[in-house]
């Protein structure tokens, strides 16, 4: 029988079992790295460095995980904090303004291929909207869970998801269901 996240966390807490923590890393690495790749606008090396920091920080502070949210939600929150701290250090936490958004959304500059266009469109969203869309629409978190991860009010999350979606739909107007 496969152990649940809760079982593995218990082993880490009681026996300081690093193999159990390794299994948790294996289970969640793809989602955490994927989220960070999107947040860092596909800077793979930086995203992986931040993902490593995320898991090391999670291990050090695992006693503060109270099980009020899913383990993945708790990890997303740490990952987002790592990203913010790094961005603050690099002074890159400035959202892209609407003018730049319009310029980059010019259909002539967009390469063919829906996936590429989608990733490109995502990278053009301001950070607050990109984070909310990624967590809620891509990673399946509820608005409430995303609010905890991003540490912002629930209403703000809903607004950011709505705005982000609208912009994505506008930028991907050429694609869509027939």
């Amino acid at each position: 029988m496969e152990l649940t996240d809760g079982d593995l966390i218990a082993r880490v807490l009681v026996e300081d079992d690093q193999h159990a923590f390794g299994e948790l890393v294996r289970r969640h690495q793809s989602a955490v790295r994927g989220l960070l790749r999107q947040l860092t606008r596909t800077d793979l090396a930086l995203a992986d460095d931040l993902a490593q920091d995320t898991f090391v920080r999670a291990y050090k502070h695992i006693r503060s995980f109270r099980g009020e949210a899913r383990f993945s939600t708790w990890l997303y929150r740490i990952a987002y904090n790592c990203f913010r701290e790094d961005a603050r250090r690099r002074k890159e936490l400035v959202g892209i303004d609407e003018e730049q958004l319009q310029a980059e959304a010019d259909p002539q500059t967009v390469d063919p291929g829906l996936r590429h266009d989608l990733m490109h469109a995502l990278s053009l969203l301001p950070l607050r909207e990109r984070s909310a869309v990624l967590l809620c629409c891509q990673n399946g978190l509820s608005h409430d869970e995303a609010a905890r991860v991003l540490n912002i009010p629930l209403g703000t999350v809903k607004t950011n998801v709505l705005r982000g979606r609208e912009k994505l739909k506008r930028m991907l107007a050429a694609w869509g269901p027939d």
Binding site: S30, R33, Q38, R115, L134, Q138, G140
Partner: peptide, 15 residues
Amino acid sequence: QLREAAPYIDDDGFT
């Protein structure tokens, strides 16, 4: 599309 655009990332020594 957003969900499908996030493929599984191989561990590849990360853990």
